[in-house]
Design a protein around this nucleic acid. Structure first.
Lengths: 110, 110
DNA sequence: TAAAAAATTAGCCAACTTGCTAACTAATTC
DNA sequence: GAATTAGTTAGCAAGTTGGCTAATTTTTTA
């Protein structure tokens, strides 16, 4: 990553040729991480290995529909994946996405 | 970091005893990183070593006052520092903050 | 098959964000 | 000291976010 690359990134057309996908991914992921409850949910699912929506909604101080929306945001960002099992849904953390993003940034920074 | 710690984090009082400061820092930093232009500005300053507001405002496709506000957000989050020099202001990236945050998260994740 | 359970979707509203232009402040130069 | 330069602050409009309750969907159980 170079200075030129960063600043060219302001130009969407230029970005497309290199890594628009990467940029959009970063946007979704950093956007998802911007809410404290979403960070907590994400780590909670990570440490549990997997979790159902109800478990999470019960655990945090927030209505179930609100939790549901945060879960949807996390899924859309790619940070969580979801699998339907009957009437339940099992959420799992996609650690690799976050690890690769943070490692990429650490690479930029030193 | 443990599952218990994550979920106790929902409780601000409990958090205070351990690391409210860390949580508030994360909030400011992830909040600042949530905007694509702020991420670009941050990396741009990082790669330049330092930069004046005008340089940045000129370089990105955005009015100067808008840039100025993004800069203020970055400074408030701790990701940039600023030093007045006469009528100019020199911004510098505080790499250490981001490195330590990302390393902490990488620590959680594996 | 009716009731219960798990979860999302819909709809509303208040609060925040982000962009702009115009106005302002402070330092420098002529 | 008047004009210029660097930059922020104020104020506003448009859009987004995030919370809630109520309604709906889908599956399971009695």
């Amino acid at each position: 990553m170079s200075l030129e690359a960063v600043e060219a990134g302001a130009d969407k057309a230029a970005a497309k040729s290199r890594g628009l996908q990467e940029i959009e991914e970063a946007d979704a992921v950093f956007g998802a991480l911007a809410h404290p409850l979403r960070r907590q949910i994400l780590l909670s699912v990570h440490f549990r290995g997997e979790a159902r929506a109800g478990e999470i909604a019960r655990r945090f101080d927030c209505s179930w529909p609100t939790t549901s929306r945060h879960l949807a945001t996390l899924v859309e960002s790619g940070l969580l994946s979801v699998e339907r099992q009957g009437r339940e849904r099992l959420y799992r953390a996609n650690d690799e996405l976050l690890v690769s993003l943070f490692e990429r940034w650490l690479g930029y920074l030193r």
